[in-house]
Protein backbone atom coordinates (compact mmCIF):
# COMPACT_ATOMS: atom_id res chain seq x y z
CA UNK A 1 0.00 0.00 0.00
CA UNK A 2 2.68 2.38 1.09
CA UNK A 3 4.93 1.36 -1.78
CA UNK A 4 2.22 2.08 -4.30
CA UNK A 5 1.64 5.44 -2.66
CA UNK A 6 5.26 6.42 -2.98
CA UNK A 7 5.27 5.21 -6.56
CA UNK A 8 2.21 7.31 -7.27
CA UNK A 9 3.94 10.26 -5.64
CA UNK A 10 6.99 9.68 -7.81
CA UNK A 11 4.81 9.71 -10.92
CA UNK A 12 3.12 12.89 -9.72
CA UNK A 13 6.46 14.55 -9.06
CA UNK A 14 7.64 13.59 -12.51
CA UNK A 15 4.48 15.02 -14.05
CA UNK A 16 4.82 18.22 -12.07
CA UNK A 17 8.38 18.60 -13.30
CA UNK A 18 7.36 18.15 -16.91
CA UNK A 19 8.47 20.64 -19.49
CA UNK A 20 4.95 21.74 -20.30
CA UNK A 21 5.93 23.85 -23.27
CA UNK A 22 7.45 20.87 -24.99
CA UNK A 23 4.71 18.50 -23.98
CA UNK A 24 2.04 20.84 -25.21
CA UNK A 25 3.84 21.49 -28.47
CA UNK A 26 3.89 17.80 -29.35
CA UNK A 27 0.43 17.12 -27.98
CA UNK A 28 -0.96 19.88 -30.16
CA UNK A 29 0.80 18.52 -33.23
CA UNK A 30 -0.67 15.08 -32.65
CA UNK A 31 -4.14 16.55 -32.11
CA UNK A 32 -3.74 18.71 -35.18
CA UNK A 33 -2.78 15.78 -37.38
CA UNK A 34 -5.61 13.73 -35.93
CA UNK A 35 -8.31 16.29 -36.54
CA UNK A 36 -7.07 17.85 -39.75
CA UNK A 37 -5.85 14.70 -41.49
CA UNK A 38 -7.68 12.00 -39.53
CA UNK A 39 -10.35 11.73 -42.21
CA UNK A 40 -7.80 10.13 -44.51
CA UNK A 41 -7.49 7.33 -41.97
CA UNK A 42 -11.25 6.93 -41.84
CA UNK A 43 -11.46 8.43 -38.37
CA UNK A 44 -14.84 9.97 -37.72
CA UNK A 45 -15.68 11.26 -34.27
CA UNK A 46 -19.02 12.69 -35.21
CA UNK A 47 -20.24 16.20 -35.69
CA UNK A 48 -20.57 17.36 -32.11
CA UNK A 49 -16.99 18.23 -31.32
CA UNK A 50 -16.44 21.14 -28.93
CA UNK A 51 -13.63 22.75 -30.90
CA UNK A 52 -12.84 23.93 -34.41
CA UNK A 53 -12.43 20.68 -36.28
CA UNK A 54 -13.78 22.40 -39.32
CA UNK A 55 -16.50 20.66 -41.29
CA UNK A 56 -15.44 22.49 -44.42
CA UNK A 57 -12.24 20.48 -44.32
CA UNK A 58 -14.22 17.83 -46.13
CA UNK A 59 -11.58 15.23 -46.69
CA UNK A 60 -9.20 15.48 -43.79
CA UNK A 61 -11.45 16.16 -40.84
CA UNK A 62 -11.85 13.50 -38.22
CA UNK A 63 -15.03 15.05 -36.91
CA UNK A 64 -16.99 18.25 -37.18
CA UNK A 65 -17.09 21.31 -34.96
CA UNK A 66 -20.48 21.46 -33.31
CA UNK A 67 -21.13 25.02 -34.37
CA UNK A 68 -21.69 23.97 -38.00
CA UNK A 69 -24.50 21.44 -37.39
CA UNK A 70 -25.92 23.64 -34.64
CA UNK A 71 -26.36 26.58 -36.98
CA UNK A 72 -27.62 24.23 -39.64
CA UNK A 73 -30.22 22.76 -37.34
CA UNK A 74 -31.33 26.14 -36.11
CA UNK A 75 -31.87 27.39 -39.64
CA UNK A 76 -34.55 24.82 -40.39
CA UNK A 77 -38.00 26.11 -41.20
CA UNK A 78 -39.82 27.01 -38.02
CA UNK A 79 -42.63 24.46 -38.23
CA UNK A 80 -40.07 21.74 -38.32
CA UNK A 81 -37.73 23.41 -35.86
CA UNK A 82 -40.40 23.55 -33.21
CA UNK A 83 -41.55 19.99 -33.74
CA UNK A 84 -39.48 17.12 -35.03
CA UNK A 85 -36.13 18.83 -35.22
CA UNK A 86 -36.11 20.09 -31.67
CA UNK A 87 -35.37 16.59 -30.44
CA UNK A 88 -32.43 16.29 -32.79
CA UNK A 89 -31.16 19.66 -31.58
CA UNK A 90 -31.44 18.61 -27.97
CA UNK A 91 -29.70 15.28 -28.47
CA UNK A 92 -27.02 17.03 -30.48
CA UNK A 93 -26.48 19.54 -27.73
CA UNK A 94 -26.32 16.75 -25.19
CA UNK A 95 -23.65 14.91 -27.17
CA UNK A 96 -21.71 18.13 -27.50
CA UNK A 97 -21.97 18.71 -23.75
CA UNK A 98 -20.72 15.21 -23.03
CA UNK A 99 -17.71 15.76 -25.25
CA UNK A 100 -17.09 19.15 -23.69
CA UNK A 101 -17.19 18.20 -20.02
CA UNK A 102 -14.38 15.72 -20.44
CA UNK A 103 -11.69 18.30 -21.12
CA UNK A 104 -13.49 21.53 -20.35
CA UNK A 105 -11.64 24.33 -22.07
CA UNK A 106 -8.67 22.01 -22.37
CA UNK A 107 -10.08 21.43 -25.85
CA UNK A 108 -9.02 24.98 -26.66
CA UNK A 109 -5.52 24.87 -25.24
CA UNK A 110 -4.57 21.40 -26.37
CA UNK A 111 -6.79 20.15 -29.19
CA UNK A 112 -8.34 22.97 -31.20
CA UNK A 113 -6.52 23.10 -34.55
CA UNK A 114 -7.16 26.82 -34.91
CA UNK A 115 -5.66 27.42 -31.48
CA UNK A 116 -2.66 25.35 -32.47
CA UNK A 117 -2.21 27.40 -35.61
CA UNK A 118 -2.24 30.56 -33.53
CA UNK A 119 0.41 29.09 -31.27
CA UNK A 120 2.49 28.31 -34.32
CA UNK A 121 2.12 31.86 -35.58
CA UNK A 122 3.16 33.07 -32.13
CA UNK A 123 6.18 30.77 -32.25
CA UNK A 124 7.08 32.22 -35.62
CA UNK A 125 6.89 35.76 -34.25
CA UNK A 126 9.00 34.76 -31.26
CA UNK A 127 11.53 33.22 -33.60
CA UNK A 128 11.76 36.42 -35.58
CA UNK A 129 12.10 38.33 -32.33
CA UNK A 130 9.12 40.62 -32.46
CA UNK A 131 7.48 41.42 -29.17
CA UNK A 132 3.81 40.72 -28.66
CA UNK A 133 1.07 43.23 -28.01
CA UNK A 134 -1.41 43.23 -25.18
CA UNK A 135 -4.70 44.88 -24.57
CA UNK A 136 -4.97 47.53 -21.94
CA UNK A 137 -7.29 46.72 -19.07
CA UNK A 138 -10.14 48.78 -20.50
CA UNK A 139 -9.74 47.28 -23.96
CA UNK A 140 -9.75 43.84 -22.40
CA UNK A 141 -12.96 44.51 -20.55
CA UNK A 142 -14.68 45.75 -23.68
CA UNK A 143 -13.43 43.10 -26.06
CA UNK A 144 -14.08 40.16 -23.79
CA UNK A 145 -17.80 40.68 -24.36
CA UNK A 146 -17.50 40.22 -28.12
CA UNK A 147 -17.63 36.45 -27.86
CA UNK A 148 -21.02 36.54 -26.21
CA UNK A 149 -22.29 38.86 -28.90
CA UNK A 150 -21.06 36.48 -31.57
CA UNK A 151 -22.66 33.56 -29.75
CA UNK A 152 -25.99 35.37 -29.63
CA UNK A 153 -25.82 36.27 -33.32
CA UNK A 154 -24.77 32.75 -34.16
CA UNK A 155 -28.03 31.50 -32.67
CA UNK A 156 -30.37 34.32 -33.69
CA UNK A 157 -29.37 34.65 -37.34
CA UNK A 158 -29.99 30.98 -38.23
CA UNK A 159 -33.33 31.24 -36.46
CA UNK A 160 -34.07 34.23 -38.64
CA UNK A 161 -33.06 32.26 -41.72
CA UNK A 162 -35.38 29.45 -40.72
CA UNK A 163 -38.17 31.93 -40.23
CA UNK A 164 -37.57 33.40 -43.65
CA UNK A 165 -36.29 36.73 -42.33
CA UNK A 166 -32.84 36.36 -43.84
CA UNK A 167 -31.51 34.84 -47.01
CA UNK A 168 -29.96 31.40 -46.95
CA UNK A 169 -26.80 33.06 -48.06
CA UNK A 170 -26.05 34.17 -44.49
CA UNK A 171 -26.24 30.67 -43.15
CA UNK A 172 -24.33 29.37 -41.29
CA UNK A 173 -23.35 32.88 -40.24
CA UNK A 174 -20.49 32.15 -37.89
CA UNK A 175 -18.89 29.57 -40.17
CA UNK A 176 -18.91 32.12 -42.95
CA UNK A 177 -16.80 34.51 -40.92
CA UNK A 178 -14.79 31.89 -39.04
CA UNK A 179 -11.12 31.83 -40.05
CA UNK A 180 -11.04 28.06 -39.50
CA UNK A 181 -13.28 27.63 -42.55
CA UNK A 182 -10.53 29.02 -44.74
CA UNK A 183 -7.40 28.12 -42.86
CA UNK A 184 -8.04 24.47 -41.99
CA UNK A 185 -9.18 23.16 -45.40
CA UNK A 186 -6.08 24.82 -46.82
CA UNK A 187 -4.03 22.33 -44.82
CA UNK A 188 -5.45 19.50 -46.91
CA UNK A 189 -4.90 21.43 -50.11
CA UNK A 190 -8.45 22.70 -50.41
CA UNK A 191 -8.26 26.42 -50.97
CA UNK A 192 -11.76 26.66 -52.41
CA UNK A 193 -12.85 28.66 -49.36
CA UNK A 194 -10.59 31.51 -50.32
CA UNK A 195 -13.13 32.79 -52.80
CA UNK A 196 -15.62 35.58 -53.03
CA UNK A 197 -19.07 34.31 -53.93
CA UNK A 198 -20.59 36.72 -56.43
CA UNK A 199 -23.86 34.83 -56.74
CA UNK A 200 -25.75 37.36 -54.64
CA UNK A 201 -25.09 40.52 -52.71
CA UNK A 202 -25.46 38.80 -49.36
CA UNK A 203 -23.14 35.99 -50.39
CA UNK A 204 -20.65 38.54 -51.64
CA UNK A 205 -20.73 40.48 -48.40
CA UNK A 206 -20.49 37.36 -46.26
CA UNK A 207 -17.60 35.83 -48.18
CA UNK A 208 -15.77 39.15 -48.24
CA UNK A 209 -16.33 39.44 -44.50
CA UNK A 210 -14.98 35.92 -44.07
CA UNK A 211 -11.86 36.80 -46.02
CA UNK A 212 -11.47 39.99 -43.98
CA UNK A 213 -11.75 38.12 -40.68
CA UNK A 214 -9.22 35.57 -41.86
CA UNK A 215 -6.84 38.32 -42.83
CA UNK A 216 -7.35 39.96 -39.44
CA UNK A 217 -6.83 36.58 -37.84
CA UNK A 218 -3.46 36.20 -39.51
CA UNK A 219 -2.27 39.67 -38.59
CA UNK A 220 -3.88 39.60 -35.15
CA UNK A 221 -2.46 36.29 -34.07
CA UNK A 222 0.92 37.43 -35.23
CA UNK A 223 0.98 40.35 -32.83
CA UNK A 224 -1.20 39.02 -30.05
CA UNK A 225 -1.08 35.59 -28.50
CA UNK A 226 -4.26 33.57 -29.10
CA UNK A 227 -5.84 36.55 -30.82
CA UNK A 228 -8.95 34.79 -32.04
CA UNK A 229 -9.73 32.79 -28.90
CA UNK A 230 -10.64 36.05 -27.27
CA UNK A 231 -13.60 36.43 -29.63
CA UNK A 232 -14.50 32.79 -30.06
CA UNK A 233 -18.21 32.08 -29.51
CA UNK A 234 -17.33 28.45 -28.83
CA UNK A 235 -15.31 29.71 -25.88
CA UNK A 236 -18.38 31.58 -24.62
CA UNK A 237 -20.52 28.48 -25.05
CA UNK A 238 -17.89 26.46 -23.18
CA UNK A 239 -17.93 28.82 -20.27
CA UNK A 240 -21.69 28.61 -19.93
CA UNK A 241 -21.42 24.83 -19.62
CA UNK A 242 -18.23 24.62 -17.58
CA UNK A 243 -19.76 23.93 -14.17
CA UNK A 244 -19.98 20.13 -14.44
CA UNK A 245 -16.73 19.76 -16.40
CA UNK A 246 -14.31 17.08 -15.28
CA UNK A 247 -11.06 18.89 -15.98
CA UNK A 248 -10.77 21.89 -13.73
CA UNK A 249 -8.28 24.62 -13.03
CA UNK A 250 -8.12 25.23 -9.32
CA UNK A 251 -6.37 27.76 -7.16
CA UNK A 252 -5.50 27.73 -3.49
CA UNK A 253 -5.60 31.42 -2.67
CA UNK A 254 -3.99 30.98 0.74
CA UNK A 255 -0.76 29.82 -0.82
CA UNK A 256 -0.78 32.48 -3.52
CA UNK A 257 1.75 35.27 -3.19
CA UNK A 258 0.13 37.20 -6.03
CA UNK A 259 3.52 37.38 -7.68
CA UNK A 260 1.76 37.60 -11.03
CA UNK A 261 3.94 34.98 -12.71
CA UNK A 262 0.83 33.20 -13.97
CA UNK A 263 -0.62 36.43 -15.30
CA UNK A 264 2.73 37.16 -16.91
CA UNK A 265 2.70 34.03 -19.05
CA UNK A 266 -1.04 33.93 -19.72
CA UNK A 267 -1.66 33.98 -23.47
CA UNK A 268 -5.05 35.52 -22.92
CA UNK A 269 -3.92 38.11 -20.37
CA UNK A 270 -6.30 37.07 -17.62
CA UNK A 271 -5.57 39.15 -14.54
CA UNK A 272 -7.81 37.18 -12.20
CA UNK A 273 -5.53 34.19 -12.32
CA UNK A 274 -3.00 36.16 -10.29
CA UNK A 275 -5.10 38.56 -8.30
CA UNK A 276 -8.12 36.53 -7.30
CA UNK A 277 -7.31 34.66 -4.10
CA UNK A 278 -10.83 33.67 -3.11
CA UNK A 279 -12.18 31.78 -6.13
CA UNK A 280 -11.27 28.11 -6.18
CA UNK A 281 -12.38 27.32 -9.72
CA UNK A 282 -10.28 29.99 -11.30
CA UNK A 283 -11.07 29.26 -14.96
CA UNK A 284 -12.59 32.33 -16.58
CA UNK A 285 -14.44 32.69 -19.85
CA UNK A 286 -11.31 33.74 -21.68
CA UNK A 287 -9.22 30.86 -20.38
CA UNK A 288 -7.99 28.25 -22.85
CA UNK A 289 -6.75 25.88 -20.14
CA UNK A 290 -3.30 25.77 -21.64
CA UNK A 291 -2.03 25.30 -18.06
CA UNK A 292 0.91 27.62 -18.67
CA UNK A 293 -0.10 29.38 -15.45
CA UNK A 294 0.26 26.14 -13.52
CA UNK A 295 3.66 25.50 -15.01
CA UNK A 296 4.88 28.99 -14.18
CA UNK A 297 3.65 29.15 -10.60
CA UNK A 298 6.53 28.81 -8.15
CA UNK A 299 4.37 28.04 -5.12
CA UNK A 300 3.72 24.41 -4.27
CA UNK A 301 0.14 23.41 -4.97
CA UNK A 302 -1.22 26.91 -5.51
CA UNK A 303 -2.51 26.22 -8.99
CA UNK A 304 -3.52 22.80 -10.12
CA UNK A 305 -5.39 21.01 -12.84
CA UNK A 306 -7.72 18.34 -11.52
CA UNK A 307 -9.59 15.67 -13.39
CA UNK A 308 -12.76 14.53 -11.63
CA UNK A 309 -11.30 15.94 -8.44
CA UNK A 310 -7.97 14.13 -8.76
CA UNK A 311 -5.02 16.49 -9.16
CA UNK A 312 -3.15 15.66 -12.34
CA UNK A 313 -0.80 18.62 -12.67
CA UNK A 314 0.23 20.86 -9.81
CA UNK A 315 2.43 23.88 -9.52
CA UNK A 316 5.66 23.11 -7.69
CA UNK A 317 8.71 25.16 -6.84
CA UNK A 318 10.92 22.42 -8.21
CA UNK A 319 9.05 22.29 -11.49
CA UNK A 320 9.12 26.06 -11.79
CA UNK A 321 12.86 26.30 -11.23
CA UNK A 322 13.49 23.50 -13.69
CA UNK A 323 11.32 25.05 -16.38
CA UNK A 324 12.49 28.62 -15.95
CA UNK A 325 16.06 27.47 -15.58
CA UNK A 326 15.73 25.72 -18.88
CA UNK A 327 14.46 28.93 -20.39
CA UNK A 328 17.45 30.74 -18.98
CA UNK A 329 19.96 28.28 -20.34
CA UNK A 330 18.27 28.15 -23.67
CA UNK A 331 20.16 30.01 -26.34
CA UNK A 332 23.27 30.45 -24.25
Amino acid sequence: MKASNTRLQAVRDAVNRVDLKNFRFWFQIVAFVLFVYGGYFAIDLGSRLPFFSCGYNDEGRAGICYLLPLQHQLSQPWPRLFSLASIAILTGFLTFTLWFIVLNKGWCGYICPLGTIQDWITALRRRIGIRYSTYSESQFEQLTKVKYLLLALMILIPLGVGGGLFSHDVSPPFCLICPARMVLPAFTGDVSQFTIDFSSKTAMVMTALGIAVTALFLVGSFVRKRFFCFFCPMSALHYLLSKPALLKLKKDGNKCTRCGDCYRVCDMGIKEIADDVTTVNIMTDDCTMCLKCVSSCPENGTLKATFAGIPIFESTEEGFIKRMGKGLQHGK
Binding site: S192, T195, A212
Partner: peptide, 13 residues
Protein backbone atom coordinates in the same frame (compact mmCIF):
# COMPACT_ATOMS: atom_id res chain seq x y z
CA UNK B 1 -16.68 32.12 -56.95
CA UNK B 2 -13.60 34.21 -57.45
CA UNK B 3 -10.21 33.40 -56.02
CA UNK B 4 -8.72 36.56 -57.40
CA UNK B 5 -11.05 38.75 -55.42
CA UNK B 6 -10.85 36.56 -52.33
CA UNK B 7 -7.10 36.50 -52.24
CA UNK B 8 -6.91 40.11 -53.30
CA UNK B 9 -9.12 41.35 -50.50
CA UNK B 10 -7.40 39.08 -48.01
CA UNK B 11 -3.95 40.17 -49.02
CA UNK B 12 -4.94 43.79 -48.99
CA UNK B 13 -6.27 43.56 -45.47
Amino acid sequence: MSYAWGLGIGLLI
